[in-house]
Design a protein around this nucleic acid. Structure first.
Lengths: 144, 144
DNA sequence: TCTATTTAGGACAAAATTGTCTCGAATGCG
DNA sequence: CGCATTCGAGACAATTTTGTCCTAAATAGA
């Protein structure tokens, strides 16, 4: 569904958000440890998320990553997925055709349409805050 | 969503089905051409589908691939996906955790649950016949 | 039986994705 | 300033997925 890079990214953002809500800034190493992702690879992904202005990064002593409270509340999953995987989730044909739409559909187009719409809707409405809140309150986990 | 191998496989089965409904047996080359897939790679995938008894293969002159009318009607997309991609579509956690269920969910588990259920339902109820019929009657295409 | 045809299957190759390492740049602090 | 700390970015490596090629095995038909 999502690339590994994307799952690492989402997990990282959720974890960074939980800590930012406590006013804590995190080093890459901590993000990697507590989101259960390989450190160096995670660093790359955080770079993308920083460029996309989803998270903020600071160099030097006491530097690290954090996320504005405002951003935590306004950022949708969609934006994270887009920053890492691009729009493949949205425009991709279920059967891999280069073009596929209602006017010239692949055999699965109509069957798939509704599922894709729901997925879009979920990604477009779910906020980082929601997910971070669930994690913070112990209702969900990132490590297993 | 699906691997490339899986999209090739689904496309191949749909095309084979349309031709089998006309009593035609197909060589790999034709399957590849009309389902828009690389020939040698498609051959491997057809091997898997044959082992899974979704399609039948025959060696020698006038050999090729075909599909029983009964199989065309009874085979669900689910079976094709399973034969090629295994059960990753079903048991995978959206965030890539090795285990993730209602009793110990990842932060996205509940958000994702409904979408996965719909996907399961679609794959479990859609038959090859439906898709092949759509293609045969010109309502959909495999080549673009 | 001999030959042409067609799939089966394994070895191999290419490409994409995932992952690591190193070195440079920025920055805070004594 | 000088130094320790932390991210940034690119080179490089490993793994997975995708894709090709070649030979063997099966088989229909002359």
């Amino acid at each position: 569904m999502f690339s590994k890079a994307c799952t690492y990214g989402i997990r990282a953002v959720i974890y960074i958000a939980t800590q930012s809500l406590d006013g804590k800034r995190l080093k890459i190493q901590d993000v990697a440890t507590y989101s259960g992702s390989p450190e160096a690879f995670t660093a790359k992904i955080l770079g993308k998320l920083n460029k996309a202005e989803i998270i903020n990064s600071y160099k030097g002593p006491h530097g690290g990553f954090e996320m504005d409270t405002q951003k935590i509340q306004s950022t949708k999953l969609e934006e994270i997925v887009y920053a890492i995987d691009g729009d493949s989730i949205y425009n991709g044909c279920a059967l891999g055709l280069s073009e596929c739409d209602a006017s010239d559909p692949c055999p699965m187009h109509n069957k798939f349409f509704q599922i894709r719409e729901e997925l879009k809707d979920m990604l477009g409405t779910t906020t980082v805050f929601e997910l971070a809140f669930g994690l913070k309150s112990g209702k969900s986990t990132l490590l297993r």
